[in-house]
Simulated assay, not measured.
Amino acid sequence: MDTLKSKRELIQQFITDIWNESRFDLLKNYIHADFVDHSLPANLPPNAEGLKSWIIGTGKSFKHRSVIEEQVTENDKSMIKFRMYLKHIGIWRNIEPAGAEVSVIGYRYFKIKEGKIIEHWALLDGNSIENQLKDAAMGCKSQD
């Protein structure tokens, strides 16, 4: 039987291996066969392949690293508050890359079944990222 500790660790390791290190060869260790990602854009399938495509696409605009700041795990659910550190390396929202380094707070909500992630939702403030990049391009420094 899965313990709360193992569920917390599943999510923590998922963020490290998949989001931070792009270890897509390990995706099957984290994602349930019936996985649904409710946060992907409509042009991507809401499954593991869609998630992989999204992370690869994000990596074309940003070198990114997510750090979990808070986590609450209860029964079959886990929610994290994370900070994503981004280095702008490719065009994003028509903003040319200038190597600016920004960060943004986000939230991820996971449902877990049979020791794997079966559902995922995310909330990340893209407008905050855009504003920080525009400020950096104009020589301004945004406060977090």
Rank of each mutant, 00 (worst) to 15 (best):
G99D: 02
I68R: 10
A48M: 08
E101G: 06
D144P: 09
M84D: 10
T16W: 01
K87G: 01
K7F: 02
V67E: 10
N29Y: 07
G90T: 05
I89L: 01
D17G: 09
M84Y: 09
G115Q: 09
L27M: 14
I18D: 01
I31Q: 00
N94C: 13
S66L: 12
A98N: 14
Y107L: 03
N47I: 05
E21P: 12
L133N: 07
N29M: 06
V104R: 00
K113E: 04
P45C: 08
E114I: 15
R23C: 13
E130C: 05
I129V: 15
F62V: 07
E74L: 12
E119Y: 03
T3K: 13
Y107N: 03
K116V: 05
I15C: 04
F82V: 06
L124Q: 11
A42R: 15
I91W: 03
D17A: 15
S6V: 14
L10A: 06
N29C: 14
I105C: 00
S53R: 11
I11N: 00
T58G: 10
E69D: 15
R8W: 00
E119N: 05
R93F: 06
D37C: 13
R8S: 13
I55S: 11
A42C: 13
H120V: 06
L4H: 05
N131H: 09
K52D: 03
K52I: 14
W54I: 08
R83Q: 08
L27K: 10
P46Y: 01
S142P: 10
G59M: 09
K63F: 05
G50L: 03
A122Y: 01
L40Y: 09
R83D: 00
V72S: 06
D144G: 06
H38C: 03
T16V: 12
E101I: 12
K5Q: 07
V36E: 00
C140L: 07
I117R: 01
M79H: 09
K7L: 04
E74T: 15
V102R: 01
N131F: 09
F62S: 03
E21L: 15
N29S: 14
Y85F: 12
E9M: 11
L27Q: 10
W92Y: 15
D25T: 13
W121D: 00
L44I: 12
Q132G: 04
N131T: 15
A137Q: 12
I89Y: 03
N75M: 06
G106W: 00
D125Y: 02
F14Y: 10
I15L: 01
G139P: 11
L4C: 06
R65I: 04
Q13A: 12
K87P: 02
Q143C: 05
A48R: 03
M1L: 13
L26M: 13
Y30F: 14
Q132T: 05
E70V: 08
P46Q: 02
Q12L: 11
L133S: 11
M84C: 14
Q143K: 12
I105L: 02
F110Q: 03
N94K: 15
K141T: 15
K111R: 12
H64Q: 13
R83T: 15
F110C: 07
H120A: 09
K111V: 08
P97V: 07
M138D: 07
K28Q: 07
R108V: 04
K5H: 04
D135P: 07
F35N: 03
I56D: 10
N94L: 13
I18P: 06
D17M: 10
A100R: 11
R23Y: 07
H38A: 02
Q13E: 13
L44W: 08
I89T: 07
A137T: 08
